[in-house]
Structures are given as structure tokens and as C-alpha cells.
Design a protein around this nucleic acid. Structure first.
Lengths: 222, 222
DNA sequence: AACAATAATGAAAAAATTTTCATTATTAAT
DNA sequence: ATTAATAATGAAAATTTTTTCATTATTGTT
């Protein structure tokens, strides 16, 4: 996950960056609004953390401009002020959430994760580990690239993601994914699992699809 | 579009049914709540119009049970009462909208259409005429049946639906739908248009895809 | 360690989809 | 009405995807 931190107080910016990096996020920092807008127009982020008080352009203004450019990237505003009118202004400018300083990193992290998850869901994406499956385009998207899955591999992966941490037998897969009333005499399922595994391995060393001897498969992502 | 009208006052029920039928809707009427629940469990509707005051089970109770059965079909409650606490109760039971009697059919129609459109959109469906294209399953759904479109036909139809009433040239289609940088020497576009037209014709006598000589294609649905 | 059951694999076969191509039909302009 | 350009069509070729099959590998049990 890639986060843009827009914060002019170097101490806070550094602390956020370090903490997010430790959590496995990819971060980028901007110290003022115009710099941020420039970066946002060129690069893609999963979330933008935006300080309210910034030199020149305010965070609220930056947020408005992001939305005017038809960019729906989740935005969280950070502010020292906690009165309600500010809160209203924050949400009116198109921000998705609002955190008042001083904050604990745990709070920021929780809100960031919740917002990213919510956004991906609304975008018809199911995320797992550092990848996500786009239900509309049928692409498997990662930080390093994306591939379009053929239909049966897509359907299988989608099914696994909807049934994580649960053993699914071949019979169930035949019925739910392949829509067969009878269990086939051949091993279509195994072959498709093999091909899907190969593609997943190209992007992660995680073994997502485990085999449970005599039972079926088990998809685990964390 | 198929609407279920649940209303015990025969006069109102008949009037609604007649008006909706005239507008081209398919309607079904139930006179009490348990009858409605029975029907809803078996048949699929695009919307349910539910009277608050019903013999035995109230409309609010019916609505709750529909939602408990994990059915998200849009529900509009009809009521003679217009105080706020009722309105709150209505929306809390899982209804999507609320109309107070007496109402004009125009008002009902407007709300019904708005709600159906909103719901389909949230379900990743694009509707046109009496059909809808499911963006997740890639199926073209009609009242009489549904078929899964092969990928290129799906992409093409989706593009047409997003660009209705606008002439799109072959060059643009090659770029946007086929993702080609060059215009092909062959007529892939024409062939795919032909096949898509054939499938659309199976469900409607409307000629959705018009050819504009020397310019391109024009998709019109109403 | 040996065995039988279960699972994984590579490659071929079959099926479905997409693209190409040759031909016919339609359009707009003269 | 003729003509040249554009569009539609059927069918074949090429490509991609899905399924099958024979073989090898792995697992759990004795």
C-alpha cells in the first residue's frame, strides 16, 4: 500500500513515515500543498494523509482540488483544531476522515486501514496481502504489475477470497465455481489450482492455497 | 421491471397496478403480509411497494423479515401517517424510501424509477430499455432470460452503454475497447458489432446499435 | 520402508473465442 | 442509374482457454 503524507512539520512527517514503513507501507512525503498536488497528478496512492495547516495552500484547499480533478483517492485530514465547524468543513471538502492532533500512531493506522478497506470494497476490489483482485476488470493487481486472469482462474480466486480460512472440497468447488451438478471424473480443479498458484507465485512468495490432504484446499492470506 | 404491490385497500392496489402496467411495468399484487412474504421468498422483483397498515403483519414487520432473509430488494413504504417518528421507524426497518398518502402516481413513479436506478447502480448493473448488463457476471439480463457475453462483446456493449447517444468511430473503439495503438487493417470491430447485435435482437426488437455512414456507430436505448 | 490413496504436473485434445478474409449488401454522391 | 466508398456477413483460420489424460510426486498409514 502506498501512502502520501503531506505535512510541513518535519518531526511529525518523519514519525509517520517511519511508523508506516515499519508496517510495510510504501510512503512518500510532501512538505507543502502545491508540491503535493504536483505529485498526486502524476502518481497513484492508496491513501493521502493531509495536514490542515500547510504553508501557502491549506489542506482543505488541496483536498478540494484533488476532488475537482475527479480523483477519489481516500483522504484523511490531520488537524490541531477539534471544533465541530472544522469537522464539517473537513468532510465537506471531500475528505473521508478527520483526525485531531495529538494522535497516537495506532489510531492513525486503524483509520487508514479501515478507510483503505472501505474504499477498495466500493471499488469492487478484494484485497489480500499486498495484492488485490479487481472484480470488474478481472485483473490481479500488485505493486509490481497486474495481469488479467482467465475466467475460471478468476472465478476460483474470487471464491477462495470469499471463503478464506475455510477448507473447501473439490466437490464444493465443482458445484459453486464450475456450476456442475455432478463431480467430474477428471481433475479440472487441480489443474486450475495449479495454474492459479503459478500466477500468484509470480507476485508473492506466500503460499496462499494450501492443500489439505483428503479434504480439499484452504486459502490463507494472513 | 417487475414490481410487487402489497396493499390491502383494493381501490389503491388496483389503481397502482393499472398505472404501473400502463408504464410498461410487470406487476403483482398481494393483499396481506404473510401472502407477500410467501411470494417474495419464491419470486424476484425489482421493487416492493409496501403498505404500512396491513391485516395481521404490518408493513414494517414484513420489511424487517425481508431484510432478515438477506434480501436487499428495494422497498418503499406507503403510509397515511406522516409524523417523524414513523419516518424514522420506516427507514430503520430497512426500507429505502417512504411515501405518505395521499400520493400522486407521478410521485410514486418518480421515486420508484429513482430507487430502481440507484439500486441497479449499486449492484453494478447498467440498465437500458428492459435489459440490464451485469458488470460483475458479464451477463445480459432480461425478463425472459439471460446470457453470458463473451469478453469482447461485453466490453463493447459496456462501452456503448457508457457512451450512449454519441457517435463512436471505429478508431475510437479500437483504442478504447480493443486497447490497440494502431487502427487494424481488418474488420474486427464490424464482426463483433454484428455478433453483439444478433444477441441483442434475441431479446428486443429495438435496433440499439445504429450505423452512421462514414462516421461510426451510435448506441441509443430510449 | 512399503503401500495405497490423494495431489500435482506437463502436455495433448477439445472447446470457445477472437480475428482474418473474401464476398455481398448498402449508402451517398454524381 | 451508376459508381465508389463504406458496412455487413458467413465462414475459415488463428488464438486462447478449458478440459482431459497419462505420469510423477506426495501424503498418511501400516
Amino acid at each position: 500500500m502506498r501512502i502520501l503524507i503531506v505535512e510541513d512539520e518535519k518531526k511529525i512527517a518523519d514519525s509517520l513515515r517511519k511508523n508506516f514503513n515499519d508496517e510495510g507501507f510504501d510512503t512518500k512525503v510532501c512538505f507543502d500543498g502545491s508540491d503535493a498536488l504536483e505529485v498526486i497528478s502524476k502518481e497513484k496512492f492508496d491513501l493521502i494523509l493531509l495536514d490542515w495547516r500547510l504553508p501557502e495552500i491549506t489542506g482543505v484547499e488541496v483536498c478540494k482540488r484533488i476532488r475537482n480533478a475527479n480523483n477519489r483517492t481516500p483522504v484523511i485530514l490531520l488537524t490541531a483544531l477539534s471544533n465541530i465547524s472544522n469537522k464539517v468543513e473537513a468532510l465537506n471538502c471531500g475528505a473521508d476522515d478527520y483526525i485531531t492532533k495529538p494522535f497516537s500512531f495506532e489510531e492513525v493506522l486503524a483509520r487508514v486501514n479501515a478507510l483503505i478497506r472501505r474504499y477498495k470494497f466500493s471499488q469492487n476490489m478484494i484485497e489480500f496481502e499486498k495484492m488485490s483482485l479487481n472484480l470488474i476488470t478481472h485483473t490481479l493487481e500488485t505493486e509490481t504489475g497486474s495481469i488479467k486472469l482467465p475466467e475460471m482462474e478468476f472465478e476460483l480466486l474470487k471464491y477462495f477470497l470469499e471463503n478464506q480460512d475455510r477448507i473447501v472440497s473439490r466437490e464444493v468447488l465443482c458445484e459453486d465455481v464450475w456450476k456442475l451438478k455432478y463431480t467430474p471424473t477428471t481433475n479440472v480443479v487441480e489443474v486450475t489450482v495449479k495454474n492459479l498458484r503459478k500466477k500468484l507465485e509470480e507476485y508473492s512468495s506466500n503460499k496462499f492455497i494450501k492443500s489439505v490432504y483428503g479434504e480439499g484446499y484452504l486459502f490463507i492470506s494472513n
